[in-house]
């Protein structure tokens, strides 16, 4: 195995992993704040990918230019979903919330299937095959863009939670629900904002992923499961953990895909998920339960 080849694979895996990480960040933020497991996460991702695809084919908008639009659209969708549906179930049992979002997921997936059909779609960019040569490395331009924007978005989000008043208020709700109500925070509104932010993360991640890969409706389940693997690996509710988990899964997928067989790559992810669930259910960076 030539070392150059291995390095190239690792870099590609790392860059894709950052986008995965951003997707999982949304899932983790929603769970961390309102303890709701968003089973429709991958479906929101696929919606974002189709939105990007439509904006590109219908309006000629570059994915990177479409990004704010898609993110805003997904924010509104997430906000409305939380306000209209999820909020009624905020105190329901875990499995009822799970089933509710499963229903939402089924409606979204099959909605996209009915609108766009089962075929894979992608955007044909003129710079799709450009790459940078850095020493022995050949790095795809699209992957660099995707990873750069994903990392930037993650930083922005971290700054939002740390420095803005709304961000601090959301963290207060996550830390102590009753306490947040006592000091007069509008918890329901903040929950909806959080759901919107989580959805917007997925929106950005979906747009970026369309630079690298195709989209078809049945990817949604794969992305939902991938999101779960990543956040459980990193620790549900931990934002840094989601990024770390994303990178780890990106690397493991790239390595097992190149060294063993591409079709076996998700088997390793599921194996990893089983081990983490059993041995370290709080995840790598999660707090002790």
């Amino acid at each position: 195995m030539p070392i150059d080849f291995l390095l190239n694979i690792l870099v590609a895996g790392l860059l894709t992993g950052l986008v995965y990480g951003l997707m999982a960040l949304g899932l983790s933020a929603i769970f961390g704040v309102m303890k709701v497991v968003n089973f429709a996460h991958g479906d929101m991702m696929v919606v974002a990918m189709y939105a990007t695809y439509t904006l590109y084919t219908a309006a000629g908008l570059e994915p990177v230019a479409a990004l704010p639009l898609v993110a805003a659209g997904l924010f509104v969708f997430g906000f409305a979903l939380q306000r209209g549906l999820v909020n009624r179930f905020i105190n329901a049992t875990e499995h009822m919330q799970f089933l509710l979002l499963l229903g939402v997921a089924m409606v979204i997936t099959n909605g996209t299937l009915m609108v766009f059909g089962p075929d894979a779609r992608n955007v044909q960019l003129d710079y799709a095959f450009d790459s940078y040569n850095v020493g022995p490395l050949i790095v795809d331009k699209v992957r660099v863009i995707a990873a750069g924007v994903a990392g930037g978005t993650a930083l922005l989000l971290a700054a939002f939670f740390r420095f803005t008043v709304t961000g601090k208020a959301i963290r207060a709700c996550a830390d102590n629900f009753t306490g947040a109500q006592v000091v007069g925070l509008h918890v329901n509104h903040l929950y909806a904002v959080t759901f919107g932010i989580g959805a917007a993360c997925v929106g950005v991640a979906g747009t970026l992923l369309l630079l690298i890969t195709d989209v078809h409706p049945h990817l949604s389940t794969d992305y939902t499961l991938l999101g779960f693997i990543i956040v459980i690996l990193g620790g549900l509710g931990s934002l840094g953990g989601a990024l770390l988990g994303g990178v780890l899964v990106g690397l493991s997928e790239a390595l097992s895909g190149a060294l063993i067989a591409p079709s076996l790559k998700s088997m390793f992810s599921f194996g990893l998920l089983i081990l983490v669930l059993l041995l370290r259910p709080q995840g790598l960076l999660g707090k002790q339960a």
Partner: peptide, 28 residues
Amino acid sequence: GFRFGVKGVYFALLTIAFAEFTRILFDH
């Protein structure tokens, strides 16, 4: 699952993980 205290949604994810793992195994 029960011995390691995997509960609720985590237990559901554990069952999914085993099913998906087996699916890929049978695929090969």
